[in-house]
Design a protein around this nucleic acid. Sequence first.
RNA 1: GCAUCGGUGGCGGAGUGGUCAAUCGCAACAGACUGUAAAUCUGUCGGGCAUAGCCCUACGAAGGUUCAAAUCCUUCCCGGUGCA
Length: 418
Amino acid sequence: MGAIHFTIEKRAPRSGARAGILKTPHGVIQTPAFVPVGTKADVKGIFPEQLEKLGAQVVLANTYHLYLQPGEKIVQDAGGLAKFMNWKGSPRGASAEWGPTMTDSGGFQVFSLGAAFGKTISKFARSNLAEQEVVAKPVIYDEDVASQHGQLAIIDDEGVSFTSHLDGSLHRFTPERSVEIQHALGADMFFAFDECTSPTEPYEYQREAMERTHRWAERSLKAHRQNSDAQKKQALFGIVQGGRFEDLRRESAREIASLGFDGIGIGGSFSKEDMRGALRAAVGELPEELPRHFLGIGEPGDILEGIANGMDLFDCVAATRIGRHGSIYTKQGIIHLKNEKYRNDFSPLDPETSVPGIEGFTRAYVSHLSRSGETLGGVIASIHNIGFILQLVAGARQAILDGKFDEYRANFVHEYYG
RNA sequence: GCAUCGGUGGCGGAGUGGUCAAUCGCAACAGACUGUAAAUCUGUCGGGCAUAGCCCUACGAAGGUUCAAAUCCUUCCCGGUGCA
């Protein structure tokens, strides 16, 4: 018996969508569920209590960040991630004092600190970028090479060497080390260390990275199984990679599913086209009974696409990031509150969405705060966006239970994307 | 009144004979952002057009010197400072 227990309550008739119950040591999560990202053990700008009011059931923090600062030992000594950040969760677990949490493995930082450095490569860059644009990747860590290339992370088969973005000090992650750190952080669910590739990588490199991710998956699992105490309290998710290539996704899903993880994460990059191809290919190989987490996916339309393809969990920084940058989700699409036309728009942030705790704020007010650089503007917009996404996903769950998911999705997409 | 320093694009502030429609910052206008090195980054930012270019108007005002002036000279206007 693992640390978590997942049951499917209801399946949509004409799509892969499903509503489930995910029981964790720190409470129950009703799926599909959106997982707000609290990288450094805080969802930027939002109190845990506010997150609970918004309906967040679980939050996700990051291994790389917490390892560097304050160090996993501090979090462990604090009593684990949930207690450290005073996260109680909602709805409350029957007996748990603290709420459900997840941690990411640091695998994404292999991408964001390595290949994606310089902001030239978007995680969602078009998949048809010319192959020759891809930069050759060194596989042996060399400090001079790393600094010359401006990269903070260099990958080899054993693991990843990287320099801290905080002080430049040299560090190394291996699958075993990532698992060890995540045991210390103590989240209910955590991810195997993987290599998140750039979408521009050619087929051969995607295969190489995928196979490395598979080997790392086995090592992560082995490291986890050697800690029987952690195994009782924490669930380990393996991550499917394979880039935009359907055959690789299929192969990766089959491999990861065969290893005996408690849950499955689907990582990497997905353009709109890849959603329908690579994602579907991967999901087709996954066992029904394991919870599926769509890593890093959080735009409204993408979430609904994921749900339609049978994904259960989603995490994303977009809601809080675009909020801090002055943009909000509305039922009619995303709007940029800093735009001139909102300076004297005294209507609610989204007339069709009521978010607890911020009902009275107008577009003009938040526009003013964002324009003038006031912290509160980003806070209100972040709360609104998290609330919006949580309501969207909660609505999707209810629609699945009511047997009307397709209609729900079509209506939303029609309004949102016009 | 005398002396002295200064008046540059919405603001601040570079530039002191040609490569200047004028560095840079701010503001403004728009865009990007999907497992957060992101309260960040990018573009535009005198006017017009057939916009990787061309034309016009511009560096307080008016004259002048020069092949060429935001830059040099003269006068005037305005502001700061000092002395009466």
